[in-house]
Simulated assay, not measured.
Amino acid sequence: MASPAFEDIVEDFEFLEDWEDRYRYVIEQGKAMPPLDDALKVPATKVDGCASQVWLHPVIENGVFRFDGDSDALIVRGLIAVLRALYNGLPVSEVPKVDAAAELARLGLNEHLSSQRSNGLRAMVQRIRSVASEHA
């Protein structure tokens, strides 16, 4: 069910055996992501439950879901990029059906993120699912 972009990340992770390399990879994904316009960093796009500041701006056009996001923490910005690879481009009706926990487990992130980061990641997934469900 994962997108080709997410499958690319899974494949890249398989080649990176060291977790420091994987963290660097995730951070690089975040750095490569275009910044979110400051005008979109408002309370309505802010995600509660994250230790760092996180903003997600969903856009649904012609039944297709995508979102942009940003964070003040590099690793979290990278996690947003990973979630964008997982969800962007899916039909909005498919977004709530994605088993994000299972897909992200393929990367082994759960064992290597702090509990605060894991909670923040779950909060981001919940926001994405909630927005998509409202528009499905």
Rank of each mutant, 00 (worst) to 15 (best):
E11M: 04
L83M: 10
R106M: 05
E61Y: 07
L36M: 02
R106C: 04
A100M: 01
P43M: 10
E61Q: 12
V98K: 01
L36Q: 04
D18H: 09
E103Y: 08
S93A: 13
S3V: 14
L40G: 04
D68G: 15
E28P: 03
S130T: 15
V26H: 00
D68Q: 10
E17H: 12
A123C: 13
S71I: 06
T45I: 07
Y23L: 07
S114K: 13
A100F: 02
V59W: 12
A51M: 10
P91Y: 12
K31G: 04
R66M: 11
I75C: 02
W19Q: 00
S93P: 09
A73V: 06
R127M: 11
S115N: 10
E14N: 06
A132D: 05
R127K: 14
G120L: 02
R84D: 06
N110A: 07
L104V: 14
Y25L: 03
D38S: 15
W55R: 09
R24D: 15
L104N: 14
G69A: 01
S3E: 15
G89T: 10
E7I: 05
D72L: 10
A85R: 04
D8A: 15
P34C: 10
N110C: 00
V95N: 05
E20I: 00
S114G: 08
S133R: 15
Y25K: 03
K31W: 10
F6H: 02
G63S: 01
S133A: 11
D21V: 00
M33K: 11
E11W: 04
C50R: 09
L74W: 04
M124T: 01
Y87P: 00
A101G: 11
L113Y: 14
P43G: 10
A5D: 06
G89A: 03
D99L: 09
A32E: 12
L113C: 10
D12L: 02
K31M: 09
L16E: 01
D70C: 06
F67Y: 06
G120P: 04
V47D: 09
E20V: 00
R127C: 13
V47F: 05
V98W: 00
S3A: 09
I27F: 11
P58D: 08
I128C: 02
N110Q: 07
S133Q: 14
P91H: 10
S71W: 09
K41V: 00
A101C: 05
D37W: 11
L121D: 08
L107R: 06
G30F: 05
R77L: 15
G69D: 00
A101D: 15
P96F: 13
E111N: 12
H135W: 10
K97I: 13
P58H: 01
D48G: 09
K97F: 07
F67I: 05
R127S: 13
G120H: 05
A5Q: 03
L74F: 08
L74T: 02
A81H: 07
K31C: 06
I128A: 05
A100C: 03
P4V: 06
A81L: 03
I27Y: 07
E103T: 14
V98R: 00
E7G: 08
I128G: 02
M1I: 11
E94M: 13
K31N: 09
E28L: 08
P43T: 01
V64S: 07
H57T: 07
M1H: 08
Y87C: 03
F15A: 11
E103L: 13
